[in-house]
Write a protein that binds this DNA or RNA. Structure first.
Lengths: 156, 156
DNA sequence: GAAGGGATACTCGGATACGCTATGTCCGAGTCGGACAGG
DNA sequence: CCTGTCCGACTCGGACATAGCGTATCCGAGTATCCCTTC
């Protein structure tokens, strides 16, 4: 059960875009060079964030991506959902209702296993929903300072 | 980020093996027919549970699988870890240390994003570790009764 | 100096290719239980 | 009645095939900015 790399990329890009708010928008080329990532594929992931309303994309020359909302109103859960999809990791296929074991049974109530997994995923989601991009920016404020400084003298 | 089907299979099989403790061991053929699952692949997943010490496999005629511990001492986390591996879903590849953004930075402290994701996964794991096969058995006691009854007159 | 036109630099959306992993199947080897034969 | 042998049932471990998805790249179209030309 592995999470896509895009999540790490998306979170770092959101934090960086938060720090570079004055320079917005930031082009894909620069973001990709910033983290040494494949530009085309990074573009695709950020487009997903734009479609979810997390990023705003401005076309044309000097275009690029910027945060669509203040960083306090973007949670980690938002980013994960936009990039990984809204589906839960555990999918109950109701195997108890198939095969010889299902005979003569009435399964009105939901599957206990499914319910337990859902509770666990809810706890996970709650943690992620309680932490915003602004929190992440504050966690490493010196890195943000350095980012602003280095970005100014970036070629391209 | 999808969990393998084997987790659902494994959990249902563990619960069923708990109910059928008196009839142990239960053969793959029967378990597969019980849930209408591909026998060969189910075998592979249960072998993984056996290797993890959750199930006990008895070879030879009238052999099969049975719980290696009392169901109160098998947590959902145990089953998930045995089937999905111990790796965390989010893997931090430290992209902040690569590319142009890393220049002139010292990254002594761990990545804040990684730490936040780890906290969330810990909450998830804690939920799963707090729930055992015995809990799941108790949740649907009537289904357990029906299982014991139907299993007795199962052909094969 | 102002207006128009073209070049440039980006994003957008879709199409395509590749590789890894989950899924599913198959086979030979080992092991246990029972049947059967011989003493 | 006891013992040894054979056979069938079942698991074990590995090898192999398939499908789906994450990863990665490319292309045509659209749009905004800049520069250059022209009046």
């Amino acid at each position: 059960m592995q999470m896509g790399e895009g999540v790490e990329w998306g979170l770092h890009c959101c934090v960086t875009l938060g720090w570079l708010n004055d320079e917005a928008p930031v082009s894909i080329r620069r973001l990709a060079a910033w983290f040494d990532l494949p530009p085309e594929y990074l573009k695709k992931r950020l487009q997903a964030l734009a479609k979810a309303g997390i990023l705003h994309s401005t076309p044309g020359a000097r275009g690029g991506f910027s945060l669509a909302r203040p960083p306090e109103r973007i949670t980690m859960m938002d980013v994960v959902t936009a990039l990984e999809g809204p589906a839960e990791a555990f999918r109950c296929t109701e195997i108890r209702q198939r095969g010889a074991g299902a005979e003569g049974g009435r399964f009105g109530r939901p599957c206990g296993i499914s319910a337990a997994m859902r509770r666990a995923e809810l706890a996970w989601r709650r943690e992620l929903a309680g932490r915003t991009i602004a929190d992440l920016m504050a966690d490493s404020a010196p890195a943000g300072e350095r980012t602003r400084r280095n970005y100014a003298r970036l070629p391209g």
